[in-house]
Design a binder for these strands. Structure first.
Lengths: 222, 222
DNA sequence: CGATTGGTTGAGCCCATTCAACGAATGTGG
DNA sequence: CCACATTCGTTGAATGGGCTCAACCAATCG
């Protein structure tokens, strides 16, 4: 059954069942596998059941940018609705499962259930807000602030999922983080080392233990 | 009457009239005036009839980021749907007029006209794509590339509006441009001067004449 | 008129990048 | 199983692109 987090519409039971019928459940995606790729025709949007993904846009000259990391319950493929082609690649960061939601069916169902349509508008709008937050980060923060913001954000989202907010097991590489934050891999590594030196975190590869969340928070809004 | 550019839904005449009735037309907004401000409760979304705007997000620490420049026909306030509060400030760059579209009415109308709802989904999705393009710019481009991309983008959008694609009359300050591109005002100024030296453009304050669009284009995808 | 805002240019500095070496972990094929 | 390659991550040294600080000019405005 679709998680409330996916499309928190406040639907009644019958409506949830009807929505549920439009979806393909627990489609398994292997680590490293492309769920969809940039330019592909829109067929469905996806909600993550378990696992995590990164989304990436490629430029003709070969440059790429990680535009987000998605955790369970979050949606992917919303950027495809505009041109009916996916605007990014979605790549599994670990073995994952997704709900595949046929877009035509969803749109049809939306016209019958106005609360669903309204809820979907909110989902789209939330993505805009999220992206603009990253724009602020990329446009005006220094390396330490970016990494601190990244850790704080991930901690919060882990917490929302009943996972530890202090012991973060990262599924992405340093390179992914760097691309997401607009930094080189060496800079990410150095900042993490500096945070560790200063006692804000402990780093053991992809396990990051936050030991002074307040210090990290104060690096954002000083 | 609402321009096709605002909500290109492929509606029939009767539907356009019904949509049109939900809107307040040609609301005049003076240069520098706030159309809506960050945190304010969502009441309406807006389409620009004439003129132009900038959208800006503010951080608690006082930092701000220009998240976009909007020209006639483009929508503002889409980021408010998520939390039912505007996520940014919208400020007129010149004396302008807007269509005010009551969001509740729009949502109700959407449930009756599925093509309208679908079209609105596309509008929201297009904003996501646009924002992610800026993320790429902010995350991986150097100063010259950013300014070139900005000029090329503006030239294209002017052309779409039957305005000159080579003689750009900017309505925004260098500071706005800098904030948008993640650069300091001095850097924007210097890059423009360098482009002028190299014969790519001519600069006279806010009038920019593009003399070698191909050179600007080649600065993006080299 | 002086005050303010907007824009340009120069000099020096600093933060993040580049270049480079190295280590650890993982996987692969003989 | 080991040898080897590959991927991932850390750290150091040097470089450089954009920032900071500063002076100056032009246009606008009360």
């Amino acid at each position: 059954m679709i998680k409330e987090r996916c499309l928190p519409a406040g639907l009644n039971e019958e409506e949830v069942v009807r929505l549920d019928q439009q979806m393909e459940h627990r489609l398994p995606i292997k680590k490293g596998q492309l769920l969809f790729s940039q330019g592909q025709a829109l067929s469905a949007i996806y909600a993550i059941s378990t696992g995590s993904f990164k989304t990436r846009i490629l430029h003709e000259d070969g440059r790429s940018q990680i535009t987000g990391f998605q955790l369970s319950g979050e949606m992917m493929g919303l950027d495809a609705i505009s041109e009916e082609r996916y605007a990014c690649d979605a790549i599994a960061l670990e073995d994952s499962t997704v709900c595949k939601i046929d877009y035509d069916s969803l749109a049809n169902l939306e016209s019958e259930i106005s609360r669903l349509q309204r809820s979907f508008n909110k989902t789209l709008s939330a993505e805009i807000v999220r992206d603009q937050t990253i724009m602020l980060l990329l446009g005006s923060m220094r390396a330490e602030e970016r990494v601190a913001a990244f850790l704080v954000n991930l901690s919060q989202r882990f917490h929302d999922r009943q996972q530890s907010a202090t012991e973060l097991v990262l599924k992405m590489t340093r390179e992914d983080i760097g691309s997401y934050l607009g930094l080189k891999i060496e800079t990410v590594s150095r900042v993490l080392s500096r945070f560790a030196e200063e006692g804000l975190i402990a780093v053991q590869g992809r396990l990051i233990v936050i030991t002074d969340i307040n210090a990290l928070l104060s690096l954002n809004s000083y």
